[in-house]
Each structure stands twice: as structure tokens, then as C-alpha cells.
Amino acid sequence: MRRLASVRLFGVLAADIAAVSGVGAFLPQNAPSDWYHSAWPHAAGFILAAGLDQVYASWWFAGLLAALALNLAVCIWRRRRAVRWPSLAMHAGILLVLAGACLRVAGGAKGQLPLDQGQACGQLVASAAGGAVPRLPFQVRLSGFRIEYDAPDRHLLQVSRDGVSEEIEVALGRESVLPRFGLVLRPLRALGDFVMSADGQARERSAAASNPALQLELGWEGRSARHWYFDRFPDMQYDAFPFNIVYRHVGRHIKDFVSEVEFLAASGSAVRARVSVNAPARFQGWTFYQSGYEPGREDHSVLLAVRDPGVYLVFCGFAAVLLGMTAWLVRP
């Protein structure tokens, strides 16, 4: 028992856990076995046989954590009368964290829920993390999805002709007149990530401002034309025009992704909720996180559904560790 509770054993276990964790951080985890054979042809056999491709899910890593938990538990028990409460709280807190993690492995579930607007679904699909992918005991319907931005886009144009230039800010649909150039401009359409589809239509490829473009209607000397101007390609000009126009896009930035959903219980009741980044929604023991979206589609959203029966135990462990550690810091 004394050896089981010893600081020396803690040191050995901590060193082992640190060492294999370090290996797991350097060696790509959960890759297909072919990948290891192509990346390390000589070491692949050992990596796969030892489970180094899945360090954190291996039985021997779980064994190390279990041994650490046993070491802590016996240590707390043997020294319960000899040490002050902060020390007991810190060590017991770590045990609670490990217990909560065990509960997650034993009773937790996780999966992605891709939804189209108006569609109700309860079947999860496997997320990258893997694990059990059950069917939800209720359905989730996507009422709407939107991307929120910090501020609207700004469109700046640098117009120049015969060595004279002028910069103006234009707005979609609003006509701007430049008397010194005899030019009338009207922005028709703006795209943050311009791409030309197979049928020759300009469309948005993603919500990111990867290729900002502005379509202008130009009028000068009784003539008119419509053209696209690109922020990333200022040299793309039209030789037929007596002037140059350089478009600069001052981009909006994505603030949040928001899904409006309805949870449809088996009893027939419906509960509305909003899911956004850093603001998940809960329903019947499941928590829903904003996980993804499809560029160019504002009628589609991907949620991550998680059930973790151990998470509150983990947080209680955090509280115990912090309480004990604060007292230990004040009175070492």
C-alpha cells in the first residue's frame, strides 16, 4: 500500500503519461493504416502493433490513467488525517475529473446532424471523433440558418483617366456620378467569393471573402456597359474603356453562425431553440453545437449532437481542484 501511494510512483506514472502523450502529439492519430505504411515504411508495423496510431484510445494508455487514479486514491486514503484539506481537495478533484472522463467513454455519444431548412431528422452520422452514433429519441428541425457579420461590406473604386484619379465609395443599386470623367457608375451585384458556374453564371462559392468582385453598370459618352471588377486582380481592365477602375473590397467579417431549430419530442411537443457558436442548446440530455455549414447555402446547417453524462462530474472536479489549490497558494 505504501508503494502504491508513493510520490515516486506518481513521478513514474506522470513521466510515462507525459512521454506517450508527447508521442501522440507528434504522430498523426487515427490515420488509415496505409498512411503509416507510406509515411514510415520501416516503423509502420511497430506503430500499428503497439497502437501508437491511437495512443489516447489504447488499452495501455487507459491503464496508465487507471494506475494514476489508483495512486491518487490510495494516497488520499492513507494521508487523509495527516494532510490539510486543500491537498485532499486537489487530489480528490483530479479523481473526479478522471471519473467524469470514464463516464463519457462509457455512456457518452456524439454525432453530426446535417439539416436542410424545414427538414426534421433524428439520425446522427459519425463525426470525425468517431464513437457510437445512435438515433436521437426525438427529431430536430431546422427552421433557419444565417451567417451574421460584424459590419456591411464597403466597396471602394479608384477611377483614373489621363493621369487624373479619384477614389469613391459606392453602394449597391445607388448611382454615382463622376463629372470630371463624364462617368456614371451603378454597382449591380457584389460577391465575396466570386466563381463562374458551368452555365456561365456568376455565383458565390463560400461565405469567406476569398475573391471579392463587384459588377458595375457604366455609362459614359452615350455608351453603357456592364462589367465585373475584382479586388484580387486590379490589373484586369477593359481596353475598350478610356479609364481604369480598381476595385477595393473592405470586407465584412463573420461574427457568428446561427441555426434556428425546433426539437420535436415523441410526445408531439415542439421546443424552439437557437444554436450558435459558443452558445449550444440542450434538449433531453443532449447538447447541440453549431458545427458547420455549406458555403453558398443558407438553407443548410450542420449541428453536432453530444451526450456526455460525465461532464458535470468533470466540472465538479475542476471546482474541487481550484478550491484546494487556491487555499494551498494562500497558505502553502
Binding site: G11, A15, S21, Y56
Partner: peptide, 29 residues
């Protein structure tokens, strides 16, 4: 709160744990 997992064995998390273990051992020794 953001990703639905308090621990993902992300390299930064893993190395923070390694650092934490190193200092825990130092203080215990």
C-alpha cells in the same frame, strides 16, 4: 461550450498537460 468536448487531445492541450505534469512532479519531489 464551443466544440462540445472539454478535452480533444489537441497538440496544445496535450503539451499543456505534459507541462502541468512536469511541474506537478517538480513540486511533489
Amino acid at each position: 461550450r464551443a466544440w462540445g468536448s472539454y478535452w480533444s487531445w489537441d497538440p496544445k492541450e496535450t503539451w499543456s498537460l505534459i507541462t502541468w505534469l512536469v511541474y506537478a512532479v517538480i513540486l511533489h519531489l
